[in-house]
């Protein structure tokens, strides 16, 4: 369409540049802060140009943590976050895809009830049932374990519905052809369905990895043992304990490290990310 409105075009770019700046500003300041020594903050205002302490700050945090506030090394916490994110993402995908498979491709008594039970979990965010869920986990002896960190979060109505939707769009004839070709249910799942859902699995993985990595409330209540801290919740504990004189350079270094993996995932897998985001909201 021919449209000659230089003012509007200019405005559009202006809005976008301001938007990008607002989005980037906090990260920039955080990164700058993480490159300075602790004393640089006493002068009053945060410095706006990089300091020279970057290797020291990140090195200390990654290998030693902050002993004064009982923070284990960030490498350990990031490892825990990684375990948690991967377990949640893979676990959710695995149990959702097989339950969607059962619901779509099998007929069995209780199928409708199972579907509804999964559906109503959509209406039960962990924030709503925090205390009783904590009790169940405690009674099962799962506090301060990786199982406790991940298994209670592993059921997923959203992922189940996504796979159900994917399976429903796969033509019926494909399954019929496979049966005539001598494939039983497991073979059909493995040889046909799984490869055909590859893109959806990848997109969902990106979303769920971010979801798992960013968990906060759940690790906060089920881990008291520092060896199971995840970085996202650890950052808060650090800010808390050092309330008297927050060591902002260390806190900001932690913040940068905490956001780095999921942000990199989004930037480098943007297509899958967008696909996953839009699909899971259908």
């Amino acid at each position: 369409m021919v449209e000659n409105r230089p003012v509007l075009n200019f405005l559009a770019h202006l809005v976008l540049i301001i938007g990008v700046a607002i989005v980037a500003f906090p990260i920039y300041v955080a990164f700058i802060a993480s490159t300075h020594g602790p004393t640089d903050f006493l002068s009053g205002l945060i410095p706006m140009t990089p300091g020279h302490n970057i290797w020291h700050t990140y090195g200390t945090m990654l290998t030693d943590g902050m002993k004064s506030s009982g923070m284990p090394p960030l490498s350990l916490q990031m490892g825990n976050s990684l375990i948690m994110a991967l377990t949640i993402a893979i676990g959710k995908i695995a149990i959702s895809i097989i339950s969607a498979y059962a619901i779509v491709y099998f007929k069995f008594p209780g199928r409708g009830i199972a579907f509804w039970l999964i559906f109503i979990t959509l209406m039960m965010p962990v924030e709503v049932r925090i205390l009783p869920t904590y009790k169940v986990v405690a009674e099962l002896g799962m506090l301060n374990t990786y199982a406790g960190l991940t298994i209670p979060l592993i059921a997923s109505a959203t992922a189940t519905f996504l796979f159900r939707q994917v399976f429903l769009t796969i033509p019926d004839e494909l399954m019929e052809a496979a049966r005539i070709d001598g494939a039983g249910p497991l073979k059909f799942f493995w040889d046909i369905l799984l490869p055909m859902s590859r893109n959806n699995i990848a997109a969902l993985f990106v979303i769920l990895f971010i979801y798992g990595w960013n968990q906060y409330l759940w690790p906060l209540i089920v881990t008291t043992d520092t060896s199971h801290y995840t970085i996202v919740m650890g950052i808060k504990r650090m800010a808390d304990v050092t309330d008297a004189q927050p060591q902002w350079n260390y806190i900001m270094a932690t913040a940068i490290l905490a956001m780095l993996p999921p942000v990199l995932v989004v930037i480098f897998m943007q297509k899958l990310f967008v696909k996953g985001l839009i699909e899971t909201e259908k």
């Binding site: 149990i95 959702s96 097989i98 339950s99 498979y101 059962a102 619901i103 779509v104 491709y105 099998f106 007929k107 069995f108 199928r111 199972a114 039970l117 999964i118 109503i120 979990t121 039960m124 049932r129 009783p132 869920t133 009790k135 169940v136 986990v137 298994i151 209670p152 592993i154 059921a155 189940t160 019926d172 399954m175 019929e176 049966r179 039983g184 249910p185 497991l186």
Partner: peptide
Amino acid sequence: MKRTTFNQRALAYLLIAPQMAVTIVFFLWP
């Protein structure tokens, strides 16, 4: 659901069991 379905019921229950277990223990019960 599909026009034709598999009729291995035991397998179907096995497939849906993990989801059901987590849902009941950590969602519905609490």
